[in-house]
Nucleic acid binder design. Structure first.
Lengths: 151, 151
DNA sequence: CTCTTACGATACTTATGAAGTTACATGATA
DNA sequence: TATCATGTAACTTCATAAGTATCGTAAGAG
């Protein structure tokens, strides 16, 4: 499988939306991500269902943030975009008859679950507001040089 | 992508090999895993290169364990089978120009790296010998009932 | 009212990589 | 020398995110 980049992409988009007055169109967001408006709508649909953004049709329409950045964690976004599979490795063949295989599966999957729990905890502990603050801090630190942004 | 099950499968095979007198053929291993001898050879090739198993051609040939179970960790096996990609999620687009994207990527990939480090540490801490001991313990605990094995 | 804009939805294609398959060469043993 | 087993290459299948094409629908502009 190709790397699932929905989380990163969506975070990128949300932070830009937060710094943007008025709605952003799927077209504009797609240009930002180097992709296509349909891909954008597909991913943003989950955020709309979760109530993090709203969408408007017609002239002046597009996507708008509808949540407080402090109230949305990276884990929330992960779930909103489909909560996709985290690991590329694992065991096919759950519930094996073979007792050897059971021991192996428990060891491997137990370890994966530990790593997943850590990942989930960390993603749940970071809010969009904190990412925005990191960005602002970086801007201030580099005030003398150029700060590039794709929006 | 389909789940990469090379680690689990290989561990399963190695533990069976450890309890088996004489070489096991790719044919027999394939039957055990519900797959094809060529898939078995492909995966076992990495273990042979790492020195964990040997292979012999001809009558009475097949695969034999060549290492002490206590000396091989699950991480070693993971590496031997190709050290495949662990995560299904991530960010495409490394080294972005956009400063917002940089902040996002650092947060997401930093978190993934933490989880990966934990996973690596845990896999490195478990030896094949420990899995074999877990299996034996389970056998003893269930001595009264049936203990199924696929080999 | 009509045209344009933008989302909504469906259906299809592309890309990627593990797994599966086919076929044949090579070496070891009986 | 016939058989068994690995070694290797080339190809197909499968799953899924991403990309694309197209049409429908709602909202504002004129």
């Amino acid at each position: 499988m190709r790397t699932d980049s929905r989380l990163s992409r969506t975070l990128h988009v949300l932070l830009h939306m937060a710094r943007h007055d008025g709605p952003m169109t799927s077209e504009a967001i797609g240009r930002m991500l180097g992709t296509n408006p349909v891909v954008v709508r597909r991913t943003m649909a989950g955020l709309r269902e979760a109530g993090y953004v709203t969408s408007e049709k017609g002239h002046g329409g597009g996507w708008t943030i509808a949540a407080n950045l402090a109230d949305v964690s990276l884990l929330d976004v992960h779930h909103a975009v489909g909560g996709p599979r985290i690991f590329a490795i694992g065991s096919d063949h759950p519930n094996p008859d073979c007792a050897v295989e059971k021991v192996v599966n428990e060891a491997v999957e137990g370890t994966l679950r530990e790593a997943e729990a850590l990942l989930i905890a960390r993603l749940g502990a970071i809010s969009l507001a904190e990412l925005a603050r990191s960005f602002d801090a970086r801007l201030r630190a580099r005030a003398s040089t150029t700060a590039h942004t794709c929006g």
